[in-house]
Every structure is written in structure tokens, then in C-alpha cells.
Computed example of a mutant assay.
Amino acid sequence: MDIPGLGPVTADTEGYGLVSAPVAVRVLGTTAPVRLDGWYEDDPGKDEWHAAVRAFLALDERARDAAAAAVFEYYRERAEAVAEEDLLPIDEPADVWAHVDLSRSVPTVLRDDEDGPVYVSIEAECAWEPEHGLQLVFRGGTEVTKAGPYDGHLT
């Protein structure tokens, strides 16, 4: 099966739906496969999935820079919960990306519920929260609606 913007996809070996070959994901600054949740195949609104994929793949480092404020807020919330001596010193939003590893992220496209919007979710490792990491969620592939611990929730 071919997905607009991704090309051929195959069954995901981890059982999460479909997965593409690695494509350029400019917002991550790398290439990565893109996973489509198992709901895609039966969803009559596939055009919404395709639009989210196109929009997300069109994002570049400017979108990553714009997301820095939300990621920094997540860092600050976590930093306030730990002892001062354990605090990782990040002084401003632009500095958070030096402490986030986006290189192994696999963007996952999914619908929140049967009638809900389509999102693109990214899981990444971050130095200030090694246990729960970072989850960035883009509604419609463009608008950051979540920057927080990876918990599988989209909002």
C-alpha cells in the first residue's frame, strides 16, 4: 500500500499498524520511518491522515524552535519536582534541544478517537527525565498540543 507523502508502507513488525521506509523528517533534523496506527486501514477519513503526514513532513527547524518554549516548560515543571542539587541547569528555551535526543524518534500518526483529530506523536529521550522521556504531539501535524512525559496521551 502507498501512503501519499510516505510511499510504500508495510506491516509494522512491532504490531502497531503500518510503517514507511525512512523519510526526511526535517523538524527532527534526521530521517526516520513514520508509523501509522492500526486504525488507519479501517478509517474512512484517510485524507485527514494524509494531510497530517504532509503537514508534519513540511515542518522544519523553525517549528522545532517554536516548540522549545513548551519543552522548556516541561523541563521547568520537572526541575521544580527534584532537589536543587539534582537540577540539570537549562537557562532558556533555546537550550533544551541540547538535552533532547530526537535521532531515534519514530513519528507515529494516529487518531485520538473515532471522530477526533489526527495527531503526530514523537517520543524522545531527554536528560532531565530519563524514566519518562519527552512526548511531543502535533495536532494535524502542525500545532504542538503536548510537550510532556511520554504517557501515550495525546493532549
Rank of each mutant, 00 (worst) to 15 (best):
P44E: 14
A127L: 15
G5T: 10
T155E: 02
H153I: 05
V120T: 08
W39D: 07
A52V: 10
E92L: 09
D2Y: 08
L154Q: 04
V34S: 01
V71T: 15
V109M: 05
V34I: 04
V109S: 15
D60G: 12
V100P: 12
L88A: 06
Y16V: 13
D60Q: 08
T155L: 13
R104T: 08
R35P: 02
P33Q: 14
R54C: 07
V53N: 03
V34L: 00
D2P: 05
V144Q: 01
A79I: 03
V106R: 08
G5E: 06
E143M: 11
G116P: 14
E14Q: 09
D65G: 11
A147E: 03
R54N: 05
Y40A: 08
V106T: 13
R35K: 06
V82C: 07
H153M: 03
C126H: 00
T30R: 10
Q135T: 03
A24T: 09
Y40F: 15
G140H: 01
V118S: 05
E77I: 01
P44N: 02
K146C: 05
E92K: 15
A11N: 03
E84G: 11
Y74H: 04
G38F: 07
E131V: 13
D101I: 04
L88E: 02
L6E: 07
P89G: 00
L57W: 07
E77Q: 08
E48P: 12
L18S: 13
A70Q: 00
P44F: 11
G17M: 08
W97G: 00
A98Y: 09
L136R: 10
D91H: 06
T142K: 14
A63K: 09
F72M: 04
H132R: 03
A24R: 15
V53Y: 00
E73P: 03
V34K: 09
A55Y: 02
E61C: 10
V109T: 14
D65H: 11
E61T: 13
T155S: 08
G29P: 07
R139N: 11
L154F: 01
D42E: 10
E80T: 13
R78A: 13
A79N: 03
A58V: 00
A66P: 02
E125P: 00
R111F: 10
A52H: 00
D37M: 03
W97S: 02
S121H: 04
R35V: 10
P107Q: 14
V71L: 13
T10E: 07
V82N: 05
T108W: 06
W49I: 01
A69G: 12
L59W: 05
E14D: 09
R26N: 06
I3Q: 04
A67S: 15
Y119W: 10
G45F: 04
V118W: 00
Y150L: 06
F56G: 09
E41D: 11
A66N: 02
D91R: 10
A127H: 14
G38H: 02
G140R: 12
C126F: 03
E123G: 13
A127I: 05
G152T: 12
Y150G: 01
H132I: 01
W49G: 08
